[in-house]
């Protein structure tokens, strides 16, 4: 029996993403949030999660996708990074998958820099690919947050 890891999956702009299940605290429906003027664009707002204030990060914006069409509401995936909890806004929640480590590969070299930086690797599922996100980098705005110069992005593509 190969070593397996559990992933919480979700979709974003048609892609399947996964986060290691141990990093996920909880998942809940869209909740009204307080917007934060002057905040980085990917910060959608602040949510009151049972008395704790957590920041909601729009993953579409973080990964340079188009915003979600107006009528659809995102879901919250709350991840815990150290002491701090952060909510990631995703399109829809998928299953929790048990995946063998053998199906894992690093992301392709020519992937868009922004995404490549946040994607730890790729799992080859039977019918599609699942991209594993690096929670620390997603949440930590200090790393990988600087806007990537146009030239670099196009060179990467």
């Amino acid at each position: 029996m190969a070593v397996e890891k559990q992933f919480c999956t979700f979709t974003l702009n048609g892609y399947l993403f996964g986060i290691e299940v141990l990093a996920v605290q909880e998942v809940f429906r869209y909740q009204e949030m307080t917007s934060v003027p002057l905040a980085p664009p990917e910060v959608r707002g602040l949510i009151n999660l049972r008395g704790q204030i957590i920041t909601a990060i729009d993953l579409r914006s973080r990964l340079n996708f188009e915003p979600l069409p107006g009528h659809r509401l995102p879901m919250n995936v709350v991840v815990r990074n150290g002491k701090e909890a952060t909510s990631l806004l995703v399109d829809a929640i998928g299953d929790v998958l048990n995946l063998p480590l053998g199906a894992y590969e690093p992301p392709p070299e020519n992937l868009n820099e922004t995404i490549r930086d946040l994607v730890q690797g790729v799992y080859k599922l039977r019918d599609k690919l699942m991209l594993v996100l690096d929670v620390d980098k997603l949440v930590g705005m200090d790393s990988g947050n600087e806007p990537i110069p146009d030239a670099l992005v196009s060179a990467g593509e």
Binding site: T34, V36, L38, A39, I53, M141
Partner: peptide, 23 residues
């Protein structure tokens, strides 16, 4: 505030209001 927002100098924190929303 979370570390994503702690750099914004015009806010010193956040609080939860009577109706449960964040201010």
């Amino acid at each position: 505030l979370g570390k994503q927002l702690s750099g914004i100098s015009v806010y010193s924190g956040a609080t939860i209001m009577g109706d449960g929303k964040v201010a």
